[in-house]
Design a binder for these strands. Structure first.
Lengths: 250, 250
DNA sequence: CGCCGGTTTGAAGAATTTCAAAGGGAGTGG
DNA sequence: CCACTCCCTTTGAAATTCTTCAAACCGGCG
């Protein structure tokens, strides 16, 4: 399942350059990282709580989630990760994993040795700043999720996470005609937004009946973006995507 | 309300050195930062959503909270900050504030110009790594709070946040005889943990009656740490405080 | 064809919120 | 020094949201 490929970091490069363009030199340094490609089947845990990873991984295709299992066995999903994300960049500085990373769909990921990352950051402080920024955006998303889970009623929560995924997929060029991949199970949405499977189901039904969204064959169509985003109280600030890139499509 | 003082960053220095000791040179560079001290009255907003700050602030005394107001006016508190924390370090890279920072008690804070921080980080990559790490710990705390809010019942949530504050206060030498400052209002706890004021009140009553804690004159006493931490399912990993420093006191 | 994971529905039950109102306690002004 | 005020805490009761339990359904895959 391991192989090497030269431009496997393309999604990451695109994302990193989205804020300020990457210099040729920076791009070269990133592309030169010695990565190992790995294909992960759906449902597989990529990193487990308690691990001391020596790699971080960049998402190439698929969908992953960071999660914690709490006493009683309930799962809390803290984030979803799509191509271009580095879900476990923090493991570079926080040696011990306090959460897991799991593949919600079949994924292909690029493993980057911490040692190489260390060197890269030392040699290119500007890249260090970019990556630091990425971890901060991550953090900003956590904060918005807390608002969702802590203070918004279920229908708003689900609408909100749909809006978020829509904008994020759009940002990496994976939204077309108001359609995005939607491989989420009701259980994964519930674990992310603090709801039971049953309730997620009922709420999705509402959203469908209100003709805000349609879901078929693991694809979600936004039927009425303005109404959906209003309903969800969705304000994309917190994703810290450059304005220009957002307003273009939506 | 502004004045200058030489060693106002002492709490921050102590915290930063807690992971790996600071070199003399690093400590000197930090202490040389041109900070402005400011006293903030309780209830005052230090930074508002939408601001583009040119400083970050280090907590010297008092208690602050990061928060968002959502449509409908509800407040979600995302984090509490005690002396030694830099609640808004992220504003160095995320230009626009997507949340606010408010003083829950009278506070004194040290404003550090972003320009000086930039220079510091460029001159001392090792300090950059330490500060990056701090923001990642912040992130880890967000993740644990998500577990709390999303998946734990109210009594566990409140017990958990109490455990967290206890360990954090202990870590900066502000816990004595199992007592910590407890200036939280029920409203602030509720806004942090996704509960109503009324319910926080009832839950605190339970915890008192179970003789897990006692609260008087804004001081909380942990009456039975082992039982409290078990009840809360509290595992301090996520605070990423060096083992040695934790087990010593608790 | 049959299995399996995921979805859907109904009904009952629990946790939590909302509404309403009374009870402290600390600071302020007279 | 007292009275007043404001904010916070506390309590009760009713309403609501969401969960749990149970069971049927559905669609893709071996």
């Amino acid at each position: 399942m391991n192989r090497l490929a030269p431009d496997s970091l393309a999604p990451l490069l695109r994302k990193l350059s989205s804020h300020h363009g990457l210099s040729a030199e920076e791009a070269r340094a990133l592309a030169a990282l010695p990565v190992t490609l790995r294909d992960v089947p759906a449902g597989h845990d990529i990193i487990r709580q308690g691990d001391h990873p020596v790699h971080s991984c960049a998402m190439i295709t698929g969908l992953t989630a960071r999660f914690k299992i709490i006493r009683g066995g309930e799962r809390q999903i803290n984030s979803f990760h799509i191509p271009g994300d580095i879900p476990d960049l923090q493991s570079l500085f926080l040696e011990r994993m306090d959460h897991g990373l799991t593949a919600l769909t079949a994924c292909s990921i690029a493993l980057i040795p911490h040692r190489s990352l260390d060197r890269l950051l030392a040699d290119f402080p500007s890249l260090a700043r970019r990556l630091w920024r990425e971890t901060l955006v991550d953090s900003a998303v956590f904060q918005e999720w807390m608002c969702n889970i802590g203070r918004r009623p279920a229908p708003m929560r689900i609408a909100h996470i749909i809006c978020e995924m829509f904008v994020r997929y759009d940002n990496i060029g994976m939204a077309h005609d108001l359609r995005i991949p939607f491989p989420f199970t009701h259980a994964s949405l519930g674990d992310a937004q603090g709801l039971s499977v049953v309730h997620v189901n009922r709420v999705l039904k509402q959203l469908r009946q209100a003709e805000l969204i349609a879901i078929e064959s693991r694809t979600l169509t936004v039927l009425d973006w303005p109404r959906l985003r209003t309903f969800a109280d969705f304000i994309p600030d917190y994703l810290h995507i450059p304005q220009a890139k957002i307003t273009a499509t939506i």
